[in-house]
Computed example of a mutant assay.
Amino acid sequence: MTSPRPLFPELARLRWPLIQAPMAGAQDARLALAVGRAGALGSLPAAMLSPEALERELQAMQAADLPCNVNFFAHRPPDATQADAAEIRWRQALAPLRAEFGLGENDGPTPASRQPFDAAMAEVLERCPPAVVSFHFGLPDAALLARVRALGCRILSSATTLREAQWLQAQGVDAVIAQGLEAGGHRGHFLDTDPDRQSDMLTLVTACAQALEVPVIAAGGIGTAAEVRAALAAGARAVQVGTAFLCCDEATTGPLHRARLLDPQAPTALTNLFSGGLARGLYNRLMAEFGPVSALAPPFPRASAALAPLRAAAERLGRDDFTPLWSGTNRRGCRAVPAAEIVEALTAGLSPAG
């Protein structure tokens, strides 16, 4: 059996080189706690939380005496004038669908907005510092990053190409998450936004492990123990897995999303329709109407507001037409069982650390 080294010395009490991917909209602290109790590193997605909500989640992890990874977005909000104009065009494009569902211009809920890491969130971390802080879409500005580093938190960020990984290393991150094209949810790109310049997980991990001095964490297309071992053999020090946890008991994934995840024939696609940012999800009606990628979608994260009423109306009818059904290409490990069973299945064949 393979015995992995701890990713960082202070995480040596974790038994497995496994990070549960942060998944906004599909989890809260309950999943992170279950993963942590099973010996892996649980994660909290913070991009759609208020500072008060994040503090409550962190307090739950600390009360259980479990380390966790807190994930933030580091995107730059789009120019307001251009985004407003794009959102008007998007609403006009969606008007026939609103009419089909009997919706007025202003009917329906307003979704939580995805916010980049800011001073208010830094203050939360200063009150409740986690073991690990990770970022998506690059890194925040130097002053904010320095506040996180001063807390002693390990800093991670996602890269979709070797160039992005090398840039992150030059900025002083403690490890790079190599996000292959197979990964579900939003692409973490920030320098190389064209998916044609991005690669599968094993290719990216191999390149990063050979070129970087900092540890590499493999993400994308990992759903079985054999795939975990393959990623470690390619040079990763740990793996990050999301899709396999989406149907577990502790996830908050909705019933329509769960049903599609458990359909082995359901295809995925990279799409910008749901948020304006490129993300991998299960194919549904919205992608059929506009094509998975459309210039009509406003820039990230502005596309979601106009879709919220349509999503709510369709879901009331038991339909997932306008629901973001995030999923990686590999759903072999996705099962409706406790999260601890997912951890056990993914780490079969590994010897516990320490």
Rank of each mutant, 00 (worst) to 15 (best):
L273W: 09
A46I: 14
E57K: 07
A234T: 00
A244I: 09
S351G: 06
S157R: 09
P77A: 08
R280H: 03
G102Q: 12
T253S: 14
L162G: 07
T268M: 01
R149A: 09
A288P: 02
A238Y: 08
V205S: 08
D28T: 08
R89P: 03
R127P: 04
M48T: 15
C128A: 14
A99P: 00
S294M: 02
G318Q: 08
G180D: 09
S134Q: 00
A288Y: 00
S199T: 13
A86I: 03
A143F: 00
M1I: 07
F101D: 07
L270D: 09
A303R: 05
H75E: 10
Q265P: 00
L54H: 10
R154V: 02
G152W: 04
P264V: 11
F135I: 05
L262Y: 10
L58T: 14
A233Y: 00
V337I: 14
T2R: 15
D28R: 08
N284W: 03
T243P: 04
A312L: 14
P129L: 00
A211E: 11
P195S: 07
S43Q: 10
R335M: 00
L14D: 06
A122T: 13
F300G: 11
A297W: 09
R149D: 11
F73V: 06
I155R: 04
A32S: 13
W90A: 06
I217N: 05
L125T: 07
Q62T: 05
L18C: 09
A279F: 06
V239G: 06
T271H: 01
D118M: 04
M23N: 11
A32Y: 10
A279D: 02
C334F: 03
L31T: 12
A259Q: 15
L278H: 03
